[in-house]
Simulated assay, not measured.
Amino acid sequence: MAALVWLGAAVTVAGLVGLVYCILSLIKARNAGLSDEDLRARLKQLMAWNLGAFFVSVIGLMMVVVGILVG
């Protein structure tokens, strides 16, 4: 079950990379001087990516826990 732990860690890192991407994209959008409507549209788009990244990260953490408990 060690493979499941390492695979889960890799999935978790992929989710964290997605979260960092969302944070950096939001900072870039805020500094771009967009209008309020454009900034809201960009935020709505990033919200979907943010939730997806959280989901991937949680799935990875669950894989790690299952790998530890089973192995």
Rank of each mutant, 00 (worst) to 15 (best):
A14K: 02
L51T: 10
L46V: 08
G52W: 06
A29E: 00
M47T: 14
G33K: 06
K28L: 08
L24G: 01
N31T: 14
L39I: 09
L34W: 09
L51R: 11
Q45R: 13
L19D: 00
M47N: 15
I23E: 08
G33C: 05
R42F: 07
V11S: 00
L24D: 10
G52I: 04
A10Q: 07
R40S: 09
R40N: 10
S25Q: 07
D36T: 13
L16P: 03
K44E: 07
T12A: 15
V13N: 02
A29L: 02
G52Y: 03
T12L: 06
N50Y: 12
A10C: 08
L43V: 15
G52Q: 04
V17A: 14
G52H: 03
L39A: 07
T12S: 14
R42H: 13
L51P: 01
A48S: 10
L39R: 09
S35W: 12
L46F: 07
S25H: 06
D38Q: 12
V17Q: 07
C22S: 08
L19Y: 00
A14F: 04
R30M: 10
L43N: 06
L39D: 01
R40K: 14
K28W: 06
L39M: 12
L26E: 07
S35N: 11
G33R: 07
A10H: 07
A53S: 15
L16N: 03
E37V: 15
A53H: 00
N50H: 15
L39Q: 07
V11E: 06
N31G: 08
K28E: 15
Y21T: 04
A29F: 05
V13T: 10
A29V: 00
A32L: 11
D38M: 09
L24W: 15
Y21R: 03
A14G: 05
N31P: 02
K28R: 14
V13P: 06
Y21E: 03
I27E: 10
A41I: 00
L46P: 03
E37S: 14
L16V: 09
A14P: 02
L43P: 00
I23T: 11
L46C: 03
L19G: 06
C22D: 02
R30G: 06
Y21A: 05
K44C: 04
I23N: 09
A48C: 04
N31S: 12
I23K: 13
C22A: 13
Q45N: 13
W49Q: 01
K44W: 04
R30V: 09
D38E: 14
I27H: 10
V20H: 09
I23G: 06
S35K: 09
R42M: 01
S25G: 05
G52V: 02
A48M: 11
F54Q: 07
V11G: 04
G52T: 04
L51N: 11
L51Y: 15
L24F: 15
W49D: 00
L43I: 15
M47V: 11
V11I: 13
V20E: 09
R42Q: 08
Y21D: 05
N31C: 10
A14D: 05
L24Q: 15
R30W: 08
V11A: 07
I27C: 10
G18L: 02
T12P: 00
N50W: 10
V11C: 05
D38H: 12
G33V: 05
G52L: 00
L43Y: 01
E37P: 06
V20Q: 12
L51G: 03
V20L: 13
W49K: 06
G15V: 02
A29T: 04
A48H: 06
T12D: 01
N50M: 12
N31D: 12
